[in-house]
């Protein structure tokens, strides 16, 4: 198909203009000082307690959110797969429907719910129950992450589960495996590529978010995303912001590498995610 080669040019332009060049700029700013000399100082800034704390909290919250999403999404996807009704795709649609709404709007809605005088506390006080102060805590941010990114966990897992034919499941039972053994030996390994996709699609945006922590954390909880945002927008120091971004990228690369290794062990025949 040599003649159709030109069709790829727009993508090439896109890749160079919007992926490669920005990446080079980040690396350039991250590894240089305001004076122009090459330095590792920007990267070393991650060891500052406030930055290190933000990165650690980001990793912690992303990790917990990812686990919570997985624990919520997997049984749901499994139930939907087993429903075997035509409406199961409709149910999936309902679960991913929030994705069609602006994510800032959804996060603001959670702000309204979790506020000290918000909907949740109004309901609690109506029943004379003690109120909760969740807003502006890491817990509020985690709730926001789970709510925003849960569909990204459900979809890939559901897709990988529906691809497993009934015959394969029946074959396992036919060979003497009870429901639990069938799950452990057949369904889980075959759905693992979907789990890996879901984990990446929840973990990475959770790790880099600053909007959710802005809205639900107030200025009280800083994630690494907020620190980087502030470097660019408030401090106006692109060098520090880029340097911290590079550190974050390294952490994302490490976590994806770990997942890819698991994926290989778990599912020799499964598709590669990265």
């Amino acid at each position: 198909m040599k003649t159709r080669k030109w069709l790829a040019y727009p993508y090439l332009v896109w890749m160079v203009g919007f992926i490669v060049v920005p990446l080079i700029l980040i690396v350039y700013y991250g590894l240089t000082s305001a004076g122009g000399g090459i330095t590792l100082d920007n990267i070393a800034l991650i060891s500052k307690p406030i930055n290190r704390g933000a990165l650690w909290l980001s990793l912690e919250l992303s990790f917990i959110s990812t686990i919570v999403c997985l624990v919520l999404a997997y049984p749901l996807a499994l139930i939907l797969r087993n429903l075997k009704i035509k409406s199961s795709s409709f149910v999936v649609l309902v679960f991913i429907l929030p994705m069609w709404m602006n994510s800032l709007l959804r996060t603001l809605a959670w702000q309204n719910i979790l506020e000290n005088t918000g909907i949740l506390n109004q309901i609690l006080s109506f029943f004379n129950l003690p109120t909760l102060s969740i807003i502006n805590t890491p817990s509020a941010i985690m709730i926001g992450m789970v709510y925003n990114f849960l569909p990204f966990m459900i979809l890939p897992i559901y897709n990988s589960l529906v691809k497993i034919s009934d015959d394969i499941v029946n074959a396992a039972k036919d060979l003497g495996a009870n429901n639990f053994q069938t799950f452990i030996r057949v369904i889980w390994p075959l759905s693992f590529p979907g789990v890996v996709s879901g984990v990446i699609m929840v973990f990475v945006p959770s790790l880099t978010t600053f909007a959710i922590s802005d809205i639900l954390g107030g200025s009280k909880v800083l994630l690494i995303g907020n620190v980087i945002e502030q470097q660019f927008k408030i401090v106006n120091n692109w060098h520090t912001g880029s340097g911290l971004s590079l550190v974050l990228m390294v952490f994302i690369l490490i976590s994806m590498a770990i997942l890819a290794k698991y994926d290989k062990n778990e599912n020799k025949a499964g598709g590669q995610i990265i």
């Binding site: 394969i168 029946n170 074959a171 057949v186 075959l190 025949a269």
Partner: peptide, 14 residues
């Protein structure tokens, strides 16, 4: 105490 050979083989791909 029966075993089945399925139409589409249904081998475990992993």
């Amino acid at each position: 105490q029966v075993n089945t050979v399925f139409q589409k083989y249904a081998l475990f791909p992993h």
